[in-house]
Amino acid sequence: MPEDKKAETKEAAAKKQLSRRDFLVTGGTVVAVDALIATTPAKAVAETAVTPSPEAAGPTYPASEGYLVYDSKKCAGCTTCMLGCSLVHYGVQNLSLARIQIMQDSFGKFPNDVKMAPCRQCKAPVCVQSCPTGAAFVDTANGNVRRIDSQKCIGCKTCIKMCPQQPHRPVWVVIDGKGKSSKCDLCLDTPYWNEKGGPGGKQACVETCPMMAIKFVAQMPDQEETEGYDVNLRNDHWLNLGLVDNSTVIPKKNPVWKVGGGEQQ
């Protein structure tokens, strides 16, 4: 990590405090994010350390101190988050290098026309469990983020094959002619960004998303729910754009069409 990223500024420290409280602005009011998530099918699970389920017997890993939740109904499919991700990590813009993947079918029907796939920072990280060299590891010095050390990665693709998610979250990249795995590190190591990342810091996808459809949270989303990370981040301002997910929803401000003309009164 570059030296300038190691020093935690006052601003970053303040942000860290704020992010741990995890406030979201919704409809002009401020609510704690765990309360918001609790309204979704996926309940928030507040755990500081977890034990893998019996069928996934193995070592115990401390829970990550950060997660990316998202709202796939709010995403506009612009892929800005993907390009931000590849830029801060690699200094180029490349969808295939992005550690968050946004997929869309232009001919599809809302809401199934977009799929968002950031890394889940799993409670029981199969990528870490299965890595034969220890390249995939839990970074206990940095908020327990599940990471991949490219220096140790031998390119066996085990983490890619074992990842239970579709699409798989570890991303295959070619560095100096050698294929290696990489994955979301919550922007801990971003040599091409003048900001501190990781838990308590900033994430490129969150910062660049124009629809504010990606959110950093400290609480672990429900691991059992397939859609546990796909939450509702829309408020009345969104509905007032006429963008509803249900025809029975009537925005408070109907999108009427009227014109006037002339000087401001």
Binding site: A76, G77, P111, G242, L243, V244, D245, N246
Partner: peptide
């Protein structure tokens, strides 16, 4: 109203 459910698409 009633609006057809939709997303903003960029």
């Amino acid at each position: 109203i009633p609006l057809t459910p939709a997303r903003a698409a960029a």
